[in-house]
């Protein structure tokens, strides 16, 4: 009795996961190719070749990704070859192995992670609304250090 109860519970849980809107899960051992867009949360534990655009992306320890990753919050624990573009937070965990180009806004790399390639900070993302404001900011000081100070605090 207890075993069947457990099984049914698991099925319910699985249903819940797959019914979450805009959620993508590529399980470990699954190979996939192509282009993914419109997802909110993506979890890649299998192998994916292609492009992905999602709000939050997690490449877990068993995950292998070849291609382009674009998102806001990105967590990498697996292997990535290609480009990573993050608008908010990019976390590269200890088990990660990355080759390629990284564009980031906020980056954390844990000791032990392997990262090879180019890392680029996105700098001032917001553009100035008008020239006056731009000139005003320039007169105060250079705008880039101002931005960094805000980030630090």
């Amino acid at each position: 009795m207890s075993e069947t109860e457990n099984e049914s519970q698991e099925i319910v849980n699985n249903d819940l996961n797959s019914n979450d809107s805009k959620t993508l899960v590529i399980g470990s051992g699954v190979r996939m190719e192509g282009k993914i867009d419109g997802a909110m949360n993506s979890d890649i534990a299998g192998t994916f070749n292609g492009k992905i655009k999602s709000d939050s992306i997690n490449v877990s320890q068993t995950g292998v990704f070849n291609g382009d990753i674009t998102g806001s919050d990105i967590n990498i624990s697996g292997k990535v070859e290609g480009t990573i573009d993050s608008d908010e937070q990019l976390n590269i965990n200890q088990s990660a192995d990355i080759k390629g180009t990284i564009e980031y806004t906020s980056l954390k790399v844990s000791y032990g992670a392997r990262v090879q390639g180019r890392i680029q900070h996105k700098g001032v993302v917001h553009s100035f609304n008008n020239v006056e404001e731009h000139v005003y900011n320039n007169n105060l000081e250079e705008d880039v250090p101002n931005e960094s100070n805000e980030d630090n605090i």
Binding site: Q89, G112, A113, R114, R118, I119, G123, S148
Partner: peptide
């Protein structure tokens, strides 16, 4: 560390990067 600003190249065996740092660099192991 978070207050760091780096431009250029970083050659390392182990690296640890904190949030907030501004890095524009080529990394090699």
């Amino acid at each position: 560390k978070s207050s760091a600003k780096i431009k250029g190249t970083i050659r390392y065996s182990n690296i640890d990067i904190q949030d907030g740092s501004i890095i524009n660099a080529d990394l090699t192991i």
